[in-house]
Amino acid sequence: MRLGADHVVARVPATSANLGPGFDAMGLALGLHDEVEVRLVASDEILVEVTGEGAGEVPDGADHLVVRALRHTLDLAGAPLTGMHLRCANRIPHGRGLGSSAAAVVSGIVAARGLLADPRALDAATMLRIATDFEGHPDNAAPALHGGATLAWSGADGPRAVGLEIDPRIAVTALVPDVRLATSRARGVLPEQVPHADAAFTAGRAALLVESLARRPELLLDATEDRLHQDYRAGVMAGTAELVRALRAEGLAATVSGAGPTVLVLTAQGQGDVLDGVLAELVDDVAGWHRVDPGIDTTGAVCRSDSMN
């Protein structure tokens, strides 16, 4: 496969996985984006310039996650590997449960697709498979690629995903703490087995969540209950657990976003004033939290390219 462009710009949304009971399966794309500009160069040089989140912390060469995903995708497509300069404008907080690593991986994949002479060589299923290989599971990768709410799973044919309907009356608020939490630490406290009653309870709530997202947002509080992972993680994110409990006590559908420690709140029509009142007492910059109202991204990853002369 030959290259058809030497300059691309990819834009990928933040994501919130799980949404309570949809552990490792459900996710939602948020209107907060990272943007990556890629320029191919006539040398072997790989240079990454990062602004925003992760600046001065993440690798600035071939070990950068976007570069690794991009070059891996080009290699799988049979395209020549060349040097490149990347400019990454990162707006998705790192280590907060908002899918920053999935966004980086997907950025590399869609940028590689944009560089190909025939982007159709990388279809949606292939891109999801590549992203899942990097991430380990598709719950963040699917909404990052496709936008909206998604349900993803892995089967004999590899990872797959379907889009879920979202009632337009639903609004999204993210409460982002100053502290970070490594996903590996959050997953490390989960037990290998859970009581059958808890598994059955959570399965029922996950099914209800699909209905409440699509048509019955008034059921979001019940639909976002979980017994598989959030309580087990409370010990490594006490502030998050306390905030989730306080919000839910006021009738608000609050969950841990991904592996945390960000809190995601899904509100139905008419609940905005309730949320504002509760957050005025519980959340501010002094307490180490800040509020983001990103909206729902319905587009997913996009890429524009400049053809080679």
Rank of each mutant, 00 (worst) to 15 (best):
G251M: 09
Y232W: 15
L128S: 08
A5R: 13
T262C: 11
D297Y: 00
S100P: 11
D273E: 15
P119V: 14
V41L: 14
H85Q: 07
W153M: 10
A102Y: 10
S184C: 02
D284Y: 10
W289A: 00
A203V: 13
A111Q: 09
V256E: 14
A124S: 14
D306T: 15
E242Y: 01
S107L: 04
L266M: 08
L81H: 05
V48P: 04
V256N: 07
A5Q: 03
T255Q: 11
A29D: 07
L209M: 07
C303W: 00
A29W: 04
A89K: 09
R71D: 10
L122Q: 09
G277C: 02
Y232N: 10
R2W: 09
P217F: 14
L264K: 05
G27W: 08
L76T: 06
A111Y: 09
R233H: 07
G27S: 05
G61E: 06
R180T: 15
G22H: 07
R248P: 01
S184P: 00
D123A: 05
A207D: 11
R216M: 00
V36L: 14
L243S: 12
L47A: 08
S257F: 13
P119Q: 13
G204S: 03
T132Y: 03
R291E: 13
L47Y: 02
G163V: 01
P138D: 00
R180W: 07
V263P: 03
A142S: 13
D297Q: 01
R169A: 15
G295H: 01
S212W: 02
V286F: 06
E211D: 15
T299D: 04
G204Q: 07
G27Q: 09
L19F: 12
D198A: 12
V12W: 00
A121G: 15
R2M: 07
G136P: 10
H64G: 06
G260I: 06
A14P: 08
A69T: 12
R304L: 09
A62Y: 01
L98C: 11
Q193V: 10
S107V: 01
L219T: 12
L151K: 13
D63M: 10
A29N: 05
T132V: 03
G97V: 04
G260D: 14
R248F: 07
A259D: 05
P191T: 04
R233T: 08
A55S: 13
G31R: 02
L228M: 09
A125F: 01
I166C: 14
